[in-house]
């Protein structure tokens, strides 16, 4: 058929242009000008890579701030992002939330306020690096006790790590859990 010839040649040319030249040039420029971001915004501590500043990880120790529930692999699997995909009337959603709430109440006996929604819901990526400032402050007393420091010092650190909305309306106030916990380890004794 006389249309297949041009189609085939055009496809080869477009593959070369948009499949090799375009990503190749972008890769080269990004590696030159933005090497940190281009390689995953990796965070180093004690000389080795402890994670990415953009990717959440799992924390269970009382001396660390905890992140949101994760449905990526077995939890914060950064090679297998995923969401729960539970609908609002799914029994599992409610059961999981009840379990999260019970555990949160047990671990944070000093906190009596309502549970911030983000703390007992799974994120879309399963790798959400952030929690809301309210979720961090709700854990401050526990972390302070575990580290043997005052609640005020911990709250101050949370405030320092809180990012506001860009230009006052873009995005939501948030705290990066990994960076906050790294700051904790830098500032205070790591062990309980």
């Amino acid at each position: 058929m006389r249309y297949l010839g041009p189609a085939f040649r055009m496809m080869l040319l477009m593959t070369f242009l948009t499949g090799f030249v375009y990503p190749g040039v972008v890769t080269a420029l990004c590696q030159i000008f933005f090497p940190r971001q281009a390689n995953g915004s990796l965070v180093k501590w004690d000389g080795h890579v402890v994670g990415s500043g953009l990717i959440g990880q799992n924390f269970t120790g009382l001396q660390y701030f905890h992140a949101r529930p994760s449905a990526a692999g077995n939890g914060y699997d950064a090679s297998n992002s995923g969401a729960s995909n539970y609908g609002p009337t799914n029994q599992h959603l409610i059961d999981r939330a009840k379990a999260s709430i019970a555990q949160f109440r047990k671990e944070n006996p000093d906190y009596h306020g309502p549970i911030p929604a983000d703390l007992v819901t799974a994120s879309a990526s399963g790798l959400d690096p952030d929690i809301s400032p309210a979720s961090a402050l709700a854990q401050a007393s526990r972390v302070a006790t575990a580290r043997g420091v005052s609640v005020g010092q911990i709250r101050e650190l949370v405030d320092e790590n809180t990012k506001g909305r860009i230009l006052g309306f873009l995005g939501e106030p948030r705290v990066n859990v990994l960076l906050l916990n790294l700051d904790l380890d830098r500032r205070f004794d790591r062990h309980q």
Binding site: I115, A117, D118, S123, D128, S132, P133, S135, E172
Partner: peptide, 21 residues
Amino acid sequence: GVETTATRNQPGGNMEGKEVR
């Protein structure tokens, strides 16, 4: 007992399957 109304420092609402940022 989950806070589903937005306040100054948490988004509230239906956060299942949404990102904090």
